[in-house]
Design a protein around this nucleic acid. Structure first.
Length: 207
DNA sequence: GTGCACATTAGTTTTATGGG
DNA sequence: CCCATAAAACTAATGTGCAC
């Protein structure tokens, strides 16, 4: 989340109007057209964003609460949604759909992302078969923690050090190929080749 | 062995639609 | 009208083949 990127007309109002009540509700801007307001947002009109917020925030909070069942998370999702609306209003095309549909789709996606993230976290918390490496821990140290007698470790030790490091960073630290390329200072294609050939070698070694 | 180009897969966002 | 869900569109990451 980027708290600083939300316009000041919105920052700070969440605590007040979400926390206390749906202060302004739908009556404050009875004639507000969401599509028009989003168009104004795209042109940097903070008052338009504020108007959307005043009219929709309480209802959005209700939707988020139903999905997440936790007020703090729901408020965070509503906040995130308005940050995104502010940043991406330019990409909204009224000809392709209704502004409200767009707004609530963003909200729902944010909430679902949080739900997915939580279930992943819970799963990882329960799952500790190898006690994988922390970022601070060296790659070689992490490999040493694999069972001494393990066939995998013996096979890894047979790899050339640079390849072994690439495999370890990818599968123990969870780095993407792109991150590996940057960290190791080699082209992306080379990283892929190293990983691929190393995995083939490991498969052959362990067969 | 390297690195590029293309294919495939997975994940995310956006839109449309149907039920309550 | 509101909301949930399915489907489509889009994006990023990964995997593979091949020329050099």
């Amino acid at each position: 989340m980027h708290p600083g990127s939300v316009p000041s007309c919105i920052e700070g109002t969440f605590e007040r109007s979400i926390g206390v009540k749906a202060a302004l509700g739908s009556g404050a801007f009875p004639a507000l057209d969401l599509n028009d307001a989003l168009g104004l947002c795209a042109r940097g009109d903070r008052a338009a964003l504020r108007a959307i917020y005043d009219r929709e925030a309480s209802r959005m909070l209700g939707v988020a609460m139903r999905l997440l069942r936790r007020r703090a998370l729901a408020e965070e999702v509503v906040h995130d949604t308005f940050v995104q609306v502010w940043q991406k209003a330019g990409s909204f095309d009224p000809g392709r759909g209704d502004g409200r549909t767009w707004l609530y789709a963003i909200l729902r996606n944010r909430a679902l992302n949080i739900l997915r993230g939580e279930s992943r976290t819970e799963y990882v918390d329960d799952f500790e078969p190898m006690n994988l490496a922390s970022e601070e821990e060296g790659v070689e140290a992490a490999l040493l923690r694999l069972s001494d007698a393990g066939q995998l470790r013996r096979c890894l030790e047979r790899l050339e050090p640079a390849r072994r490091q690439a495999v370890a960073l990818a599968y123990l630290h969870g780095l993407s190929h792109g991150e590996l390329a940057g960290r190791l200072g080699v082209p992306l294609g080379t990283v892929k080749s190293w990983i691929r050939r190393s995995l083939l070698a490991l498969r052959e070694c362990m067969a």
